[in-house]
């Protein structure tokens, strides 16, 4: 079954730049997909449209049965609760501890205290940070901070995890640790993961489905793909 269906989507920004031209795509439930492409290829725009930060100018974006393009601003939170998002710059709150940062997501949804505690500890265990619960973000390495961000994204057990260049700020070794965490989440929780990246090494090592974009056009979709230089 398809979790995401993108039909004839075009995105034109207000400044006249067209980021995506007539995109058609389907992503299966439980899959692990890389979106690759150079700068300006539209991969970030694609991710942004999936969590309704941007609206497509034309076409349909359906995530889990919800037509994202038609979603009113007031109702966006309904979509966001179904997915987790991880960014290159972690976006943690510096004044909160690791535990509080992850719990923050659930507190916003009004969950009960003991339920929050259980879920947070489970999520932190999944990313391998159970021993850093009371640390503050600035006491952690970049890789650890990104793992906290991943824990926050998965704490509500979303069906879809969107990652926008999650390894962009990390060295190759830490990057592989993050990829290991994501792979485990994909396998153990069955979470669909879509990750935008331009890290050639990671894509080649992981051997997952690869969607290649170039200047806003879909170049190809490959199962167990590789990062092909000539395509970019």
């Amino acid at each position: 079954m398809d979790l995401i269906r993108i039909k004839n989507v075009e995105k034109k920004y207000k400044n006249g730049v067209t980021a995506i031209y007539d995109l058609n795509l389907a992503i299966e439930k439980g899959s692990f997909v890389f979106v690759i492409g150079g700068s300006g290829s539209g991969k970030s725009t694609l991710i942004k449209m999936l969590y309704r930060e941007e609206k497509p100018t034309k076409g349909q974006v359906i995530v889990g049965g919800l037509d994202v393009a038609k979603l009113k601003d007031r109702k966006v939170y309904k979509l966001r609760r179904k997915l987790g998002i991880v960014f290159q710059d972690y976006r943690l709150l510096p004044k909160l501890t690791v535990f509080e940062n992850v719990a923050f997501a659930l507190e916003c949804l009004g969950e009960k205290k003991n339920e929050i505690r259980q879920k947070v500890l489970k999520a932190l265990e999944d990313v391998g940070l159970k021993n850093k619960v009371h640390s503050y973000p600035d006491q952690l390495s970049g890789g650890e901070q990104q793992r906290v961000a991943i824990a926050r994204a998965i704490v509500n057990d979303p069906k879809l995890l969107l990652c926008d260049e999650p390894t962009g700020n990390l060295d190759p070794e830490r990057s592989m640790e993050i990829m290991q965490v994501l792979e485990d989440i994909n396998k153990n929780r069955g979470t669909t993961i879509i990750m935008a990246t331009h890290d050639k090494e990671i894509v080649n090592k992981m051997k997952k489905q690869v969607i290649t974009l170039k200047d806003g056009h879909l170049v190809n979709v490959k199962k167990k793909g590789k990062y092909e230089d000539e395509a970019i």
Binding site: R74, V76, R80, F104, A105, C108, N156
Partner: peptide, 9 residues
């Protein structure tokens, strides 16, 4: 961040 994690308005 609140908006990203799905807090309502």
């Amino acid at each position: 961040i609140m908006r990203l994690v799905g807090a309502s308005n």
